[in-house]
């Protein structure tokens, strides 16, 4: 009950924030610009028009669609991740610095309930963002190309999982580090970062980087760029694995974050 009350309050609070409105409108504007760009390309290359049936034109069209979709997904995905990180890293800490947390925790609310409630409120906001941009991307894809490959909505759903995963890591880290540092660490401390760094290293340093690669969560698991390019969809088992992976990280981060918050002095 308390979790839902805190989540609802967090959701309502965030919906009133002007910066959030700017982010939402910005993301939709980017999609709009992409639609405009594609319309321009279509007028320049009439072969891209719907109905072109020969193999060469079809291939070019597919590649164009794929390329644009990947770029678009990368942009809206990055915005989603930064949005989730920003909201989650500052959600609890801003209540602590403003002092409102003490008013809430003077009620029979357990700290973990407050923490999970805040997380849930942020998840809902990121959900609204995903729903908005996802609906727009799917609608534009359907009306521009006359069909909607299943990989597009799936990719958007994966972007949501990725955003919440990175945000949850940031939120847990913010209980230990300064929120802005937590945000940066959560964004950069992905497994892939250390694989990339390992490429420049040798010996023990390389082994350490490889160990970190296996120990840290992978964000790449949620990027379906190849699928978007090829128009192929992954198997149900692969989807289930990714969902389970995300939920496991969320659970671990919520436990870690709530434990750190429990031990914290709210002076």
């Amino acid at each position: 009950m308390s979790i839902l009350a805190v989540a609802k309050d967090q959701f309502s609070d965030l919906l009133r924030r002007r910066y959030l409105l700017v982010i939402f409108i910005g993301a939709l504007a980017i999609i709009g610009m992409w639609v405009g760009y594609l319309a321009l390309m279509k007028s320049l290359f009439p072969a891209m028009q719907q109905g072109a049936q020969d193999a060469a034109t079809k291939g070019m069209t597919e590649m164009m669609i794929g390329g644009l979709q990947v770029a678009l997904h990368a942009i809206i995905g990055s915005i989603g991740v930064l949005l989730a990180l920003g909201l989650m890293c500052f959600s609890v800490t801003s209540e602590v610095s403003k002092g409102t947390v003490r008013m809430i925790l003077s009620r029979p609310v357990r700290r973990y309930e407050f923490f999970i409630g805040k997380w849930l409120g942020c998840v809902c906001i990121v959900g609204v963002y995903t729903l908005l941009v996802g609906t727009m991307v799917c609608t534009y894809t359907y009306y521009s190309f006359g069909r909607l490959l299943p990989v597009i909505p799936l990719s958007i759903a994966m972007l949501f999982l990725k955003a919440i995963t990175v945000g949850s890591i940031g939120m847990a880290l913010a209980m230990w580090l300064r929120p802005i540092v937590a945000l940066l660490v959560a964004y950069l401390a992905a497994a892939e970062t250390f694989l990339f760094i390992a490429g420049f290293m040798h010996g023990i340093a390389k082994s350490v980087m490889h160990t970190l690669f296996y120990a840290l969560p992978s964000y790449k698991a949620f990027d379906l760029y190849t699928g978007i390019m090829n128009g192929t969809i992954m198997s149900g088992a692969e989807i289930a694995y990714r969902v389970a992976y995300a939920v496991l990280i969320w659970a671990l981060m919520l436990i870690a974050g709530a434990s750190l918050f429990q031990r914290r002095d709210l002076a």
Binding site: V6, S12, D13, T100, M103, I104, R107, P108, V109
Partner: peptide
Amino acid sequence: LRRIGYLPEYVNLHEYYTPDGMLNYYARLS
């Protein structure tokens, strides 16, 4: 805490609420 009421020195309330809404929120928390 269920049996305690607390008024801090600096009353920090969520400013977007009306008194009714705020009391409703605290009632739900309680």
